[in-house]
């Protein structure tokens, strides 16, 4: 379609406006984290590094940050193993109920977080599994599986299974085939999946609220600080950190894999 110059210009202007709309609120948090004022009043009163210095020394914030990192690493590790196993089973085997596997994998992220959260917390209470760190990890791992699975299966579908068959014909056993053929083909896809799973877990708040008990992750700390007026300047700092820790892994993942786009639902 030949697009006229005026149409191009108009489209360009709208596009820039939408990108500004997307980035402005994020940029604003960065600005406020250096604002010496303590209210949302615009324009900022002055520049200060005090909030950053305070945030670094705030033990509650430190603890929450650390908890989030460790929980995200644990959830990612579980999701990495289970997601990869499931993707190999679905992509390389035929069996009864194969379609339902893909469905069950997506379900935890397709259903509203509040449903997943209530279901897990009710069940944990019923079976006597204590809420807290491990409950958070179980919840996060559940909805992170799909992220690894989606990335891995997209790759497996592109890489023909005949390489694996050829390796087997040449005398390689299952383990050797997996190590030298399947794993190298999958590596960048599952690394991308793991980065995304980490970002998703690090950022998750709804399921976490239901499973945390008294434990605070960074999003829980931020959420609870919304109600504490004197804590709000620190929320801006925590926000910048939270944004960086989800955005950087995602950016790296986009460099590694092309199937990042629809991974988060």
């Amino acid at each position: 379609m030949s697009i006229g110059r005026r149409t191009r210009l108009a489209l360009g202007i709208v596009t820039v406006a939408i990108l500004v709309f997307i980035y402005l609120p994020i940029g604003l948090i960065v600005v406020y984290s250096f604002n010496s004022g303590t209210t949302p009043a615009w324009p900022p009163v002055g520049f200060t590094l005090d909030w950053w210095a305070l945030a670094v020394r705030n033990s509650g914030l430190q603890q929450a940050f650390l908890t989030s990192i460790v929980a995200a690493l644990c959830a990612t590790a579980i999701a990495l193993v289970l997601g990869t196993l499931a993707s190999i089973a679905v992509a390389r085997h035929r069996f009864f109920g194969r379609e339902s596997i893909s469905f069950v994998v997506v379900l935890p992220i397709a259903l509203p977080g509040i449903v997943t959260g209530m279901a897990l917390s009710t069940t944990f209470a019923q079976v006597g599994f204590p809420l807290g760190f491990f409950a958070i990890v179980v919840g996060h791992a559940t909805f992170c599986i799909v992220i690894v699975y989606n990335n891995a299966i997209a790759r497996l579908r592109r890489v023909s299974g005949s390489f694996e068959e050829a390796a087997a014909d040449l005398g390689a056993d299952q383990w050797l085939t997996f190590r030298t053929i399947t794993l190298p083909a999958l590596r960048s896809a599952i690394v991308a999946g793991a980065l995304l799973a980490f970002a998703l877990s690090f950022d998750e708040v709804i399921v976490t609220i239901f499973t945390a008990g008294g434990v605070k992750t960074l999003p829980i700390w931020i959420f609870q600080s919304f109600r504490l007026a004197n804590q709000l300047p620190l929320v801006n700092v925590a926000g910048v950190v939270a944004i960086l820790l989800s955005v950087v892994p995602v950016y790296l993942a986009t460099r590694l894999s092309s199937s990042v786009v629809g991974a988060r639902t």
Partner: peptide, 16 residues
């Protein structure tokens, strides 16, 4: 540029 902010902290986007 469109994917990355989609993953940026949900709570902070609301707070902003």
């Amino acid at each position: 540029a469109v994917i990355v902010p989609l993953w940026a902290s949900y709570l902070i986007k609301v707070y902003s």
